[in-house]
Nucleic acid binder design. Structure first.
Length: 272
DNA sequence: CACTCTACCTGTGCGC
DNA sequence: TGCGCACAGGTAGAGT
């Protein structure tokens, strides 16, 4: 389940790695699962993306924004969201179509950008203005300032867990990093944000940024049996029944806002 | 308006 | 061994 650090890692691999997408021209699009194309319709998508060249790549929250330019110099943005099981590969043409491949962009170089997604939840847009897709996202979690954070939380009485998962407040945090952030902040997921002290609010903000930064530096998380993007080790996610690395108490799994939520009952006391 | 809940999917892992 | 089923979760859109 790629969240901000894993998506950032994908972006860096595709752009800074070898081979790179930078300056590659698209010959044609193949769309084995038509509904992954969210906008425009798949026929227009395929027609418009032909002969476009990749000129930059950005990430906001969990969204990848590929800047592309047509032969006539018209700029568009290819937006891709991997959702839970999406993956992107830059591969030789003969490896372009696998069992769960949902979109292939065939490139002039003989390579192909392959979008695989077993569950088919991932989505792709081709737009003139990316604000049409990502306009309602809050500030990116990797770089959000304390002033922005405070502003986003102002007036809310929501519990911390659903608050962290709300992409319109802070972009990029998913279920795994939400649990990790709350554990490191020593805050219980059910606490209403309105009841935090100034010190606790500052601690939560600095932990959001530091956990995401650390995970980005590690190229994402490594979770036994779930996924292995990078080397970041989680302390609580999926570790229910195991001892807390800080106090040795047993980590429990509860349900908060319909999400599996992992908590150390000692370190994250509801009234702390 | 502010928030909560469900549908969308399929691979995995459990119980019987 | 094999079958069936609950579970996993990000987001849009429906519901409260």
């Amino acid at each position: 389940m790629p969240e901000l650090p894993e998506v950032e890692s994908v972006a860096r691999t595709l752009w800074d790695g070898t081979p790179s997408l930078n300056d590659q021209t698209i010959i044609k699009a193949t769309i084995p699962l038509l509904k992954v194309i969210q906008q425009p319709d798949h026929l227009r998508f395929a027609a418009e993306i032909e002969q476009c060249c990749f000129i930059n790549l950005n990430r906001i929250g969990k969204y990848l924004l590929f800047g592309i330019e047509s032969a006539k110099g018209i700029r568009h943005t290819l937006v891709i969201h991997l959702r839970m099981t999406g993956r992107l590969f830059l591969v030789p043409e003969h490896e372009a179509h696998q069992q769960h491949t949902r979109l292939i962009l065939h490139l002039h170089s003989g390579l192909a950008l392959r979008f695989d997604d077993p569950r088919g939840f991932g989505r792709v847009w081709l737009v003139d203005d990316p604000a049409k897709v990502i306009g309602s996202l809050g500030p990116d979690g990797l770089t959000i300032s304390y002033e922005q954070f405070t502003k986003q939380l102002a007036g809310s009485k929501r519990q911390l867990k659903p608050l962290l998962l709300d992409q319109s407040l802070i972009a990029g945090i998913g279920n795994i990093y939400a649990d990790e952030i709350l554990f490191r902040s020593q805050l219980h997921p059910l606490i209403p944000v309105s009841s935090l002290s100034e010190e606790q609010r500052q601690r939560l903000h600095s932990t959001i940024v530091s956990v995401l930064q650390e995970a980005v530096a590690m190229q994402g998380a490594n979770i036994d049996g779930v996924f292995k993007a990078g080397k970041f080790q989680v302390a609580v996610y999926g570790r229910n029944g195991s001892p807390c690395p800080l106090c040795g108490d047993i980590i429990i799994k509860i349900k908060v806002a319909q999400r599996g939520t992992h908590v150390c009952p000692t370190c994250q006391h509801p009234t702390s």
